[in-house]
Write a protein that binds this DNA or RNA. Structure first.
Length: 545
RNA sequence: CGGCCAAUAGCUCAGUUGGUUAGAGCGCCUGAUUGUGAUUCAGGAGGUCGCGGGUUCAAAUCCCGUUUGGCCGCCCA
């Protein structure tokens, strides 16, 4: 009988464990941020009635659906994106949902288009939306979420460029275009500004002129408008310039007022000014955005395009409801983001779930190894047991090495005799003898989580450098500053969430040169933190008091 | 959908006027006096040369068809 060839469909992918481990960590971290902002998860079926999913998709988009008849002859399709299902949920459970409805949803979507580099037929979307409020605070929250996600993933040098569609509508009024179809194609062209540059946009616009709607003068006005923000990093000056340019158009004035309000709220939420940039060339290619729009770029990897983007779309969610439902949301381009982080070497290189492999020396000592593995697991440590007691030790070590498990417990008859075991560090081959009652502690002390974002609750010997502070999780507790000789210079404490900034602000300019490293310990009780810091200061009498 | 290119071991590929039993590197498995991995040495497994047809004494090699993959364009973001 002929063997069936193992193969997968074009445009579909396997996620092997080595890519799945960092991927799920990343997704989990993003979900944590969403939940920190009070969003709940939602999931919906991947197959729905075609009439629902097709929604208001035009005949062009319809071709891109995986659509078929099920065994009962129903006309169904695989979901094309997540927003339509959200709209259906809003319409279907209207009275049950608390408004504004805040949900996040991560899952695969399917598009029957031709696969290309970075474009697949099955890929993940990761959406977070606020439905049912037109408050601009929601828009500002979205920008704050964007910023928080980038922070949580440890991304350096990102820029959130944002704009407001109403500003563009003001421009439309200014030029005197009334046809919204023309305006949509103009926006699609402008959206390519980054990719094709000013001249590319000019060419595209010239092509549109042929179809009527606006003339040479309008084209120059558009290009002039697009360059308003060029060279300035001062956002409020930028808004002023836009406002002046669009004076006399009601929509333009409203757009600028919204921009100003969202910017102010985002700043008040703690988004620093230098990651935010007003940019009139950001319009998003999709037709349905109505207000705030934004995109996020990595300055160190701009070729990947926007890794996270979103905006307000007040007309879309209401298609299954009787009234209009305002909404604002973000979509994380998870595949792009992973590709970009990989390029920048920012992906945790964790390949194994296990922190430690418990090897099995031989059939006589199996139960001893089983006990050790059980103890480690009860202590909350991810421990893998080698499953073949007859395998040579060399083979077991090789197994750990190939899987990227950093620690191996070796427990033969010699160790069993005195209730100990050997703990081997695969990174350098070092081995230590440990009593089994101390093993869990020893594993914890020697396990370096490959994910730099993992909040371990305590950490030692962090280099006292500017970029490290951002990696201290938002917790409270006690910290120690040390000099190059590892002597304690200062001990302090921070209340919940303030650890990072407290450490940063704890030394004066001249003291700073002396500080080499710092340690921190998470403590959830401020009183306890304070007492502990006081106690340490009394005991050690550190130089900086 | 249109154009160009490719398809030989798990992976990357060599194999040239058609000629014995199709090769290399990497990877994988086993071993090098029995308690130590990613280095070294020895050995081993693994291929109907994408599939179908044709030309020929003889095809991985030449011809036709077909399928799959890649790049460009169209489309989509």
């Amino acid at each position: 009988m002929a063997r069936i060839q193992p193969k997968i469909l074009k445009g579909f992918r396997d996620y092997l464990p080595e890519v799945m481990v960092p991927r799920t960590r990343l997704l989990r971290r993003i979900a944590e941020v969403f939940e920190r902002f009070g969003f709940e998860p939602l999931d919906t079926p991947s197959v729905e009635y075609a009439e629902i999913l097709l929604g208001k998709a035009g005949p062009e988009a319809e071709k891109l659906f995986y659509r078929f008849n099920d065994q009962g002859g129903r006309d169904v399709a695989l979901r094309y994106e997540l927003t339509v299902s959200l709209a259906r949920v809003i319409g279907q459970y209207k009275t049950d949902l608390v408004k504004p409805f805040k949900r996040y949803q991560m899952g695969p979507v399917w598009r029957a288009e031709s696969p290309a580099k970075g474009r697949f037929r099955e890929f993940w979307q990761c959406d977070v939306d606020i439905v049912g409020t037109d408050s601009l605070l929601a828009d500002a929250e979205c920008i704050a979420i964007d910023h928080a996600v980038m922070r949580a993933l440890n991304v350096p040098n990102y820029l959130i460029r944002f704009n407001n569609r109403k500003v563009f509508r003001g421009l439309q009024a200014r030029i005197g275009i009334s046809d919204s179809e023309t305006m949509n194609s103009i926006m699609r062209s402008v959206d390519k500004f980054d990719k094709v540059g000013e001249n590319g946009v000019r060419k595209e616009l010239e092509a549109i002129i042929g179809n009527g709607g606006f003339g040479e003068k309008g084209l120059e006005t558009i290009l002039e408008f697009l360059k308003l923000a060029e060279g300035t990093s001062d956002n409020s000056a930028c808004i002023d310039a836009l406002e002046q340019f669009l004076s006399g158009t009601e929509m333009g004035q409203r757009g600028c007022a919204e921009l100003r309000e969202v910017l102010g709220s985002a700043q008040a939420l703690g988004v620093p000014d230098d990651v935010l940039q007003i940019d009139p060339t950001i319009v998003r290619g999709l037709d349905y955005y109505t207000g705030t729009v934004f995109e996020t770029f990595l300055k160190d990897a701009p070729q990947f395009g926007s890794v996270m983007s979103g905006g307000r779309y007040d007309g879309l969610i209401g298609i299954f409801s009787s009234e209009e439902v305002p909404a604002v949301g973000i979509s994380v381009g998870i595949d792009r983001l992973i590709a970009a982080l990989e390029e920048l070497k920012l992906l945790p290189d964790a390949r194994a779930s296990a922190a430690v492999l418990v090897s099995v020396f031989g059939t006589e000592t199996v139960d001893y190894s089983l006990k050790i593995a059980g103890d480690l697991r009860r202590a909350g440590i991810n421990a893998e047991l080698y499953l073949d007691p007859k395998a040579k030790l060399a083979k077991q070590l090789k197994y750990a090495s190939r899987k990227g498990i950093p620690l191996v417990v070796i427990a033969g008859p010699e160790e069993e005799k005195d209730g100990s075991c050997s703990l081997r560090l695969m990174s350098n081959g070092e081995q230590m003898q440990v009593k089994i009652e101390n093993l869990a502690q020893a594993v914890q002390d020697n396990y370096v989580d490959p994910d730099p974002n993992a909040a371990t609750g305590r950490s030692w010997d962090w280099e006292f450098a500017e970029d490290m502070f951002d990696r201290v999780p938002a917790v409270g507790g006690v910290y120690l500053l040390r000099n190059a000789q590892h002597e304690v210079l200062k001990c302090g404490w921070a209340s919940y969430g303030k650890l990072s900034e407290t450490i940063r602000e704890s030394v004066s300019g001249e003291q700073r040169a002396e500080v080499a490293t710092f340690d921190w310990y998470e403590i959830r009780d401020d009183n306890l933190s304070q007492m502990l810091a006081q106690f340490i200061n009394e005991k050690l009498q550190p130089k900086f008091g």
